[in-house]
Design a protein around this nucleic acid. Sequence first.
DNA 1: GCCAAGCCTG
DNA 2: CAGGCTTGGC
Length: 613
Amino acid sequence: MHHFPSSTYPEDRAEHPPSFLHDNTYNSPTPPSSSRSSGGSLISMLLRKTVESEQTLQESSAAYYNPEAHISFSALTSPRLVDHHSSTSSKSSSTTMEPLSPASQASTGASPNGAGWNQDWTLELGDRRQAKRARVENIIRGIAVSPPSPSVHCTHGETTPTSDLQSETMENKQEGKRKQRVPQHQDLLRTGGASGKSTDEGHNLKKQLQTMQRLLGYPETEVFMDPYNKLLADILKYELSRAVNSSVDSIFKNISHTLFKPPQLHIKDGGMVETDDEPVFLSSHELASSSTHVDSMSRLPPCSKSGMAQQLPEIQTEALSLVVQKPASMTRPCSLNLTVKRPLHFHQPSLLYNHPTDLQEDHQVLDNLKHNGFHHDTFGKLPCRPTTTGLPTPEMVDLLWDPVKVKSKVTSRPPRSPQVHHPTATGHNVLLDSLGLPHVKMEYGSFQSMVKRTSYVLNEGLTTHHLKKAKLMFFYTRYPSSNVLTAFFSDIQLTRCIMSQLIKWFSNFREFYYIQMEKFARRARVEGVNSVRDVAVSRDSELFRALNMHYNKANDFQVPDRFLEVAEITLQEFYISISLARDSDPSWKKAIYKVISKLDSDVPAEFKAPLTT
DNA sequence: GCCAAGCCTG
DNA sequence: CAGGCTTGGC
């Protein structure tokens, strides 16, 4: 098996029982990711706030949420968050790298596999307020949509509608003309939007609001008399104004992050989540990252964010610098210069029906205004290079609806030195679309099952699916050769740039891996572990959880036992080196790297996937 | 000088 | 995760 080369403690190693006697029945705990995104659509939240106001007015004592939905929500989110901390802290008293207590593990494992809050809107369907929301939504959508003129000034003028969503949105394009000026938010906040420097634009906005209020069933005075509601109204005005001015890009981008949510989710026993429909790519983990990390939305690349804009023939009303990236070639440049972005997905279930905790709500609205609402420039001005193909194929357009691709950073980074290679138009490769969707625990050997063909595309660049695949491959190989990469990423044109990116990915994976190893090795020493024999890695260990969270965030992949063995060896190597004070040598890790590099396994053929059909 | 790998940074 | 830089081997 795997010996323990260069170990300083061969005796320890010899005496150390096989560490891979892991419980096969282990039910992988859900990574402590969590929670819901604190972000979301401003308009959605504002609308909901408005509806809530209505609710308050009409049913002051009634619970807003469907009790059942509320319960589900709580069960889906809160426990895990709490549990994560408790389990982590529970370990602090341990002097070894022992697994967490069964209790904590159990409670953790009982948590759902993320995407918990996604259920909310589903559970609310049928509510009578749904109709009202729908109407309001239509209004908003109408506001946001530009004039119908299809004379798009864009290199992709022949953009082909490919979805119902799209055509549906098209129907709502018959709206009035849009303003050009984009009011500064400071002005809006200062003047209350339609007041002060108000123009006819303000009147229009007010009309829109009045319409909404009527639909919501209460007199407008009721809304604005309350200072709180007035504030919300002001904010709403601001948002509407932005939409009216064909500057909904940022809003669009904000909501697009969440609008691509799965159309339907079901909670399975044990908290696992699965979907009826295929396009489920936006996991709660991904969303969680946006809340735990600094405003990830603001960091989303413009190309990916504005990608869906090319789905509709648009009218160019101004010379915006927004660029669109061809989704099928995320890392490749794009030449689209569409200038009008529309919230095509306003009608989709989204945060409109998502209900973050109430108390946070108010702050979220304002915070989003401050932090999310004004990233227009950030979104729109980052460079994006032209595509090599110029025109999007229907498949490409179709891919625009892939939320992962659209939202992912992976899609944005152009290759360092873009080599203009012309895609072989006949290269009907298949996307590993389902890489982004499996929320069901899958077996090691069933990787194939998550490789499904959804469309024929010409993959010129790496997508988030490739990234996810690469991460899973890391469980087998830490140092993949270029041959392996070539073999397992045959669905994309492995240019030098792409290959470099793949290599870089694995380099980053290793970096994280070794950082964790060092951290936990040092922690073990601090906590009093005095023998390498006590250094072990199991699926229960915090180290594994961290790694699993990083490489298998959705926790939908059964990590091979061999990886745990390698991880344990790595941890032990670090432990040994640190114990011997080798870390005083600047290159002390290299010896470890050399050891670990010999522990690679073959990547299952399933990962090659049937990329062509 | 080139290149791969690693390190640092954002 | 990716860009930039350094390092070390050739």
